[in-house]
Design a binder for these strands. Structure first.
Lengths: 182, 182
DNA sequence: ACCTGAACACCGTTCAAGT
DNA sequence: ACCTGAACACCGTTCAAGT
């Protein structure tokens, strides 16, 4: 990659982050290009779709979330690790308004640039769920895709509503994941 | 209201319903006007905002949901009534893609045309929650706003994902609403 | 009292032409 | 190898002019 191209790439990512933070994932691509000091065609050359841009922005952060899952598995009892990782993932999915929707909609779309990210998260979820299930910490029928739906739903609520309210629903969902009597 | 105005009003509502069903609540207003056979200005004269249009579309349906809540209170035990009404409300909120977001975002915005609908739903939720709480059917700290968040979150998931997956998460959320051990 | 539709501002996306 | 920006298609919203 040529040096000027690399520089444009970095500036586009930085401005996209600013714009997505401020206006959500629907932010204007033209404004991102303008603020990065490049023509709109340059943005499209580097990122053919909005999802591709989003994927590049999330990549590092996503790796971190997976890494934190590994650590939790090593250091914490099953139920605790699962809940802690769910909370980390919700916070992660709250980076931009609209991100939760982008993530859940690529869950079963292998052609999406974000599919890899979803898949990696689901695999880590699978390990945490499996471990908690063996320990009897969660209901036996709970799956990794339930956890994924729970995380994105909690993040979506968090986008729209007070932190207190979002926390209350997250509490209810996590409790609902535990073994049920009767 | 003049007869021709009334006719335009009705046609706009009918076409908006078609468009929202097909493209979600972000459907093109210009297309709705075009299909209704009126100029775009006429649409704006009848419905100053997209939310106002949505509100008119939901009004009847909303009254029905409240009415069904009344019946459930009369005919069913507290826990059962609550769960049944939650399911009815989720289905109601699934009418158009994007409706769950519109509803939750007007929850604490009294200036929104949809505020009345949210408020009515929350009041009915309050009655059902109160009744279930007295019977010990739900956790003592659960509130009507928790129920509202739960319903919209479940509807949002349903918009994005298979009915089976949505049902699984709804089951988890409703179970999490029950009294928790420990 | 209601309707029309041009006008304005904005956006996503492509692609021929430039360096 | 990469960048530019005009061109096209589309949309939301307003408002002066018409009936």
């Amino acid at each position: 990659m040529r040096a000027d191209a690399r520089r444009n790439y970095e500036r586009l990512l930085a401005e996209a982050d600013v714009a997505f933070r401020e206006h959500g994932t629907d932010a204007s691509l033209e404004e991102i290009a303008r603020r990065a000091g490049v023509a709109i065609g340059t943005l499209y050359a580097h990122f053919p779709t909005r999802q591709a841009l989003l994927e590049s922005l999330m990549r590092e952060r996503n790796d971190q979330v997976i890494g934190q899952g590994e650590e939790l598995i090593k250091e914490r009892p099953p139920g605790e690790a699962l809940e802690a990782w769910a909370r980390i993932s919700v916070a992660h999915t709250t980076a931009y308004r609209g991100l939760a929707a982008s993530l859940i909609s690529c869950f079963d779309d292998p052609t999406s640039p974000l599919y890899g990210a979803c898949h990696a998260m689901t695999e880590m979820g699978e390990r945490l769920v499996e471990r908690a299930r063996e320990a009897g910490g969660i209901r036996p029928d709970a799956s990794a895709s339930d956890l994924f739906a729970l995380i994105t739903a909690a993040a979506w609520v968090r986008e729209q509503v007070s932190e207190e309210q979002a926390e209350r629903l997250l509490r209810i969902m996590i409790d609902g994941l535990r073994p049920q009597e009767g």
